[in-house]
Design a protein around this nucleic acid. Sequence first.
DNA 1: GAAAGTTACTTCGCCAGCGAACTATTCGCC
DNA 2: GGCGAATAGTTCGCTGGCGAAGTAACTTTC
Lengths: 183, 183
Amino acid sequence: MRPPAETTEGVPARSADATEDWADRHVARWRDHWIDIDFDDEIEAITVRIGFIAKFFNDARATAVSEVGLADFEYKTLHMLMIRDTPGHASPTALAKDLDISPAGMTGRLDSMEKSGWVRRTTSAEDRRKISVEATKAGIEIWRRAMDLRGEAETRLLETLSSERRTELAALLKQLTLRMEAE
Amino acid sequence: MRPPAETTEGVPARSADATEDWADRHVARWRDHWIDIDFDDEIEAITVRIGFIAKFFNDARATAVSEVGLADFEYKTLHMLMIRDTPGHASPTALAKDLDISPAGMTGRLDSMEKSGWVRRTTSAEDRRKISVEATKAGIEIWRRAMDLRGEAETRLLETLSSERRTELAALLKQLTLRMEAE
DNA sequence: GAAAGTTACTTCGCCAGCGAACTATTCGCC
DNA sequence: GGCGAATAGTTCGCTGGCGAAGTAACTTTC
């Protein structure tokens, strides 16, 4: 859409592939306007690209999820319920924390999902304030079907990279996640 | 400059750093349960990590945005308005498409943002159905302040990588975004 | 040149999620 | 053993966004 930006000095190393992606064009467009802002071309490009790829995965998940007939919030709840270290059951509060939603929101989700039969609430006997949320058989099954579809899209994209480059990518990303976890 | 990811048989490639991140633990926990689902350890780990990093960036943006006193949807709207190829103005329909929201939602955002003074609606003279959305001076200014803060967090995380590894990462991600754009 | 179609935005009714206030239960402590 | 504090979940009023229907302006077609 745009002519390649004049790459004079101060421009970081270019990828072997000369074709520009959206991030390249974005950076080229704004390079001159961000003198006052602490701004690094490559960092901005990486950020934009990660955002795009994450959006791709999100969209793929949303499609997969609606294909099996689940609302997005239902999938997310089931997913979090399943992948936690006590798979299949949790307290509403803990689940809300994991899902980054408010307790009020959690109550709403559970009401709706209990009605649909994906999840079950059971009150604890020894502490009657406590409630345990459990995935039902139907809930687990539909979650797995969505997972399966979701995985296909991810695989299709990531298979663009050779196995070696995929390993490289995994390691680079891990360096970042480890750093995040350290904080 | 490649991470020495020695692949011993059966076991997927390990990063040079033996420390496990959340993605590693997640994959380890589920490896045996996904025999029936087409499932690759490394692909799942990459997906999870990208999701985490994107969430980190999102949270950082949300913090930056609220720090300057903007609602998230206001920032997103201003941002999209500014970074498009006609910076600072667009039609509501085009903007809605870029932002992935409905026309109805766009009307709502514009109503609210116009009231706050970040944005202005002007009706076209030659086609009176058309409206042009423009960022006001105040809107542009506050957006730039948020951008500045946002950039700091991104830089802080990505500076964990050496400049060389950052370039590697940018190139790997670009291979994926190019693939996405091709579709 | 008027009916039919298209385009551009708004209005309406609905839903998910939020923060704050509320209820119910258990814990801590003198 | 009784009372204040803490914990667990729910209710309430409100907001952003959605889909569908509505309005208004322009375009096409005969």
